[in-house]
Design a protein around this nucleic acid. Sequence first.
DNA 1: TAGTGCTGGTCTCTTTTTGAGACCGACAAA
DNA 2: TTTGTCGGTCTCAAAAAGAGACCAGCACTA
Lengths: 135, 135
Amino acid sequence: MDGKVINLKSKMEIYKAISDGGNIANCPVRDVIQGFSGKWRSLLMMALAEQPYRFGELRRLVPDISQRMLTQTLHDLQRDGYVHREVFPTKPPGVEYSLTDLGRSMFGAFHQLILWAELNHDAVREARAAFDAAQ
Amino acid sequence: MDGKVINLKSKMEIYKAISDGGNIANCPVRDVIQGFSGKWRSLLMMALAEQPYRFGELRRLVPDISQRMLTQTLHDLQRDGYVHREVFPTKPPGVEYSLTDLGRSMFGAFHQLILWAELNHDAVREARAAFDAAQ
DNA sequence: TAGTGCTGGTCTCTTTTTGAGACCGACAAA
DNA sequence: TTTGTCGGTCTCAAAAAGAGACCAGCACTA
């Protein structure tokens, strides 16, 4: 197996998957996956996958998120169609956030990664410790 | 199903999963998943999942990554045990990056998300367009 | 009646992260 | 002798994220 022969073909394939002609919006991976990239999005998706929560509840659930980032991240998730925002005209008014069907569908795939993380947490930590020791 | 009864239990579960006593390093999700959060890590993992690449090849493959971020992201992936870095003492010296077993294992789970992204790219784009139009 | 608290935010300021691009040494080819 | 390749590092500007003050409207309390 030389590897050189399939080199060009693979490069073209991965280039299509990654760049798609230089237009990022046309690339599913970059356009959608990078939506998960934010520091807080995955955590909020996990929380909302369990049940709907209100703004203040989420804030207490993720203690080290700033109010500003919570607002903004929920707004982004809503814009991408993963989260539904509903205002209840109580006094004081309450706002409930819940997953949409699209959000639940996405979380199904994302869940695989969560399971992997739980299973392999130790392996990653060991790799880090070994790497740092080698420095 | 009232939902109120399991409220407390769920809160405790999600709190354990997210915060784990306030120590982020003990929480698999935050410790491992946030490793995928970076803007470039998923792209480089995708590239390296196809075949090993050298530094310059990766730079050409992902045209809009800066050299600095490529260096740093590869370093981080190596530290977490996903990527192996091998130096060939040629002239000029070449450096090849490849996935480790741990990296391939992680990519298996991550792959689900890639497939989802390809399938649902249009739905996300439509959600965004609808949201922006409603503003 | 004045004070306090809860709601879901916005606004400003500082710190951290990222991006753009110059620079590096060793060697090869022109 | 200039130019190019290799895999980076270094510096500085721009963007993103974090900390925390502030807001209106209402309920309860002293």
